[in-house]
Amino acid sequence: MAEITKEELRQPENLIYKKTDLLTDKALSYCPGCGHGTAHRIVMEVLDEMGIQDQTIGIAPVGCSVLAYEFMNIDMQQAAHGRAPAVATAVKRLYPEKFVFTYQGDGDLAAIGTAETIHACNRGENIVIIFINNGIYGMTGGQMAPTTLPGMKSSTSPYGRDVATMGNPLKITELIAQLPGTIYVTRQAVHTPANVRKTKKAVRKAFENQKLNKGLSFVEIVSNCNSGWKMTPRQSNEWMVDNMFPFYPLGDIKVND
């Protein structure tokens, strides 16, 4: 067998994978190992592959991904905390032929923005919602989120979430699946190659739905927040599999074709 040098291998014709041009060259502001980065990349790869960069308007939330517009090489608006679905509603109504998506954390989408989320979903706005559920308020330093698991520690539930006094975690994705306005509701993850591939398929399907004017597609990505959870990235992914997935099981929740 002929040997091959690294120089010979690293030629454009052998290129299998490189970061999409729809991500800027700016270093991500996220903590090492944070799923936000992978989720950003998946969304941008899908837009790239669909060739719709010039027709897409993204809405960034308030949360760790508030600076998504620094990394996504598309036109973007930064919305007030929780209001991205309302912002996206107007953008899509005014530009029905363009692609519009929101990218939101769990505090943004399922606490302060619950009304905007539910009503945009219920109206069946023809948009895509990407929902990063890390069970915590990452940006503000690891406070309890609507999605924080029972017994889970956070800076505002230092002894663990006591559901008797702090309420139950909200499975907003299951709730949203009940609404007639949603066409596709799914829960995915991005911690392994297989999960990344599945999530990318889901995101692609969501944008294809929008292309066909089918209604609102909602992609939850259960993700880690190693800083908020106070773990290493690898530990946090393991903890996520053991604790988050049983409560937030992965897979499609609603698929209306």
């Binding site: 290129l15 299998i16 994978y17 970061k19 936000h36 980065g37 992978t38 392994t192 190659p193």
Partner: peptide
Amino acid sequence: IVCPDGVITVY
């Protein structure tokens, strides 16, 4: 594809 920071190029 799992690298959150997208720093790996593959040939």
